[in-house]
């Protein structure tokens, strides 16, 4: 039978895994667009790198959430907590916002950033606006992270 700790760890794995997948796809899309632009115009490397980094944050949020779960259940920091199955599920559920929103928002942020690559190809001086468009998507990843953290700290273990 599944113990509470395993369910909590599934939550940690999903947070890190799904948000990470999203970021990998997002960063990958922007990277391809950026490579296309830099082939023709190598001077724009710095600007494109900035845009490529943006969809990477979801992966970091996922990792942060994962770490917090690991720390609360005692995987890191020692002293494994004896979790009941319902408590385990509570951790799993707390990880869901950052896992799912992270996955999807990173892909869309990647698409916006890639569009911004097209923008700086024509108007390099408007990099700031391109970043703002991409960062709008970030809002929802941050909100999801916030929700996950609040849920995590609310679990009485």
């Amino acid at each position: 039978m599944m113990d509470g700790i395993q369910i909590a760890l599934l939550g940690a794995a999903l947070a890190v895994g799904l948000a990470g997948i999203g970021s990998a796809i997002g960063v990958g899309i922007v990277g391809q667009s950026a490579a296309g632009l830099v082939t023709e115009d190598p001077d724009k490397f710095g600007q494109t790198l900035l845009l490529q980094a943006l969809p990477g944050t979801q992966g970091i949020y996922g990792l942060l959430t994962g770490f917090m779960i690991m720390q609360r259940v005692g995987i890191i920091g020692g002293g494994l907590v004896n979790l009941s199955v319902p408590d385990g599920y509570a951790f799993l559920m707390a990880s869901i916002p950052v896992a799912i929103v992270g996955l999807i928002s990173a892909v869309y942020q990647g698409r916006v950033s890639a569009a911004a690559i097209g923008l700086i190809a024509k108007r390099p001086e408007e990099l700031g606006k391109g970043i703002v468009f991409a960062v709008m998507v970030e809002t929802y990843a941050v909100l999801a992270l916030l929700a996950s953290i609040m849920l995590l700290f609310g679990i009485p273990v």
Binding site: V30, G36, L37
Partner: peptide, 8 residues
């Protein structure tokens, strides 16, 4: 994505 980046 690459092709369009280059086209831009």
């Amino acid at each position: 994505a690459y092709a369009v980046g280059r086209i831009r």
